[in-house]
């Protein structure tokens, strides 16, 4: 990991030509891969170094800082927005806030389940799986309701496929194995129609992000993909070219929107404060602006029962 850092620092001064630069970047990526594959015991060191590489976020884990894990259930790659949101949260909560991002849902889930972070914006699917190790904080309101859908998409130039079952033997892109919309729903959809999800497609792969599913399907790398409907619609506003290369062939029933969860041993006061802050966003000018950028209408406290349908699907898929 230290070598990682050295290489990253090195490529600032050592880039002489494209080949060298590429070699350094590729090498850095390679190191990242190994790091990611590394044991969780090095989690703390990893996060510290990862944050060092992200100058927009606080350089150190400050004592008493509120640590919030983020996953690609929203467009989590907009760093300027994240900075604005963090600053707003710090002002409202009157304490430092640290956003913690990881390459996949699993690592964030591991962090919150292990109590390494306080809150996390996760998917409904892992929430129902670990609901006894987590506490529900708030559920976003999208188009006025705490629900969202999974979209099944195909490349825009594929005019023949009209349902998931048309994609038999094709290459399919999932977003994350811990995503409801990007994994569980298509798995359930195949299982429910009597197919074996593990053999239905000739190949499948994970892109570790909804946005990248749209990209993979758009360029034709995958013949189909499953994506968070809220992310797809938001992306359609910010990057219409990306979504324009895809076509929605199926929309799932409504599921509970990916919620904010807290670690199980969160002090009640902290949970209440954070929930109140989220719920109070629409009432604040800057909060409302941040919500507008998220294309959300606000948050509600929400009930665990919102995710019953996801739990049912998970149980069904697990049984097979």
């Amino acid at each position: 990991m230290l070598r990682c850092k050295v290489l990253r620092a090195g490529n600032v001064i050592e880039i002489r030509d494209e080949a060298t630069a590429f070699a350094l970047i590729i090498a850095a990526m390679n190191q990242d891969d190994h790091c990611r594959a590394g044991s969780r015991r090095r989690g703390f060191l990893q996060s510290a170094l990862a944050m060092a590489a992200m100058p927009l976020l606080p350089a150190r884990a400050e004592a008493g800082a509120l640590r919030i894990g983020l996953t690609p259930v929203f467009l989590d790659d907009q760093l300027s927005f994240l900075t604005r949101w963090r600053v707003w949260l710090e002002r409202r909560l009157k304490r430092p806030v640290v956003f913690v991002q990881r390459g996949n849902y699993r690592e964030v889930l591991d962090l919150i389940r292990g109590g390494k972070i306080d809150f996390a914006w996760i998917c409904g699917y892992p929430y129902v799986r670990y609901r006894h190790e987590l506490r529900l904080v708030a559920v976003p309101l999208w188009r006025g309701r705490p629900y969202y859908q999974s979209y099944l998409i195909v490349p825009d130039d594929d005019a023949k496929s009209n349902s998931l079952t048309d994609l038999r033997g094709k290459v399919f892109a999932y977003s994350d194995p811990d995503s409801n919309s990007g994994y569980l729903y298509p798995q359930y959809r195949l299982t429910a129609s009597g197919e074996n999800p593990s053999t239905f497609f000739s190949r499948h792969f994970f892109t570790w992000g909804h946005r990248k599913v749209v990209e993979a399907v758009g360029v034709g790398l995958a013949d189909g993909g499953a994506v968070d409907g809220y992310v797809w619609e938001t992306l359609a506003e910010f990057h219409p070219k990306l979504t324009g290369a895809t076509r929605i062939i199926e929309r799932s029933p409504e599921f509970g929107h990916p919620p904010f969860a807290a670690r199980a041993d969160i002090p009640e006061l902290e949970l209440q404060q954070f929930r109140a802050t989220l719920l109070g966003m629409p009432a604040d000018t800057e909060g409302a602006e941040l919500l507008r950028l998220l294309r959300l209408d606000g948050f509600v406290a929400g009930q665990g029962s919102l995710f019953n349908e996801i739990a049912r699907m998970a149980a069904r898929v697990r049984r097979t």
Partner: peptide
């Protein structure tokens, strides 16, 4: 040299069957 660097870099995604990462690597070139 590009091919060599790519080949080295693509070993892990290939072993892990990580198509998307492999795609991102070749796109970055």
């Amino acid at each position: 040299s590009l091919a060599r660097v790519m080949a080295n870099t693509l070993v892990a995604p290939m072993l892990h069957d990580d198509i998307w990462r492999a795609y991102e690597i070749i796109q970055s070139a």
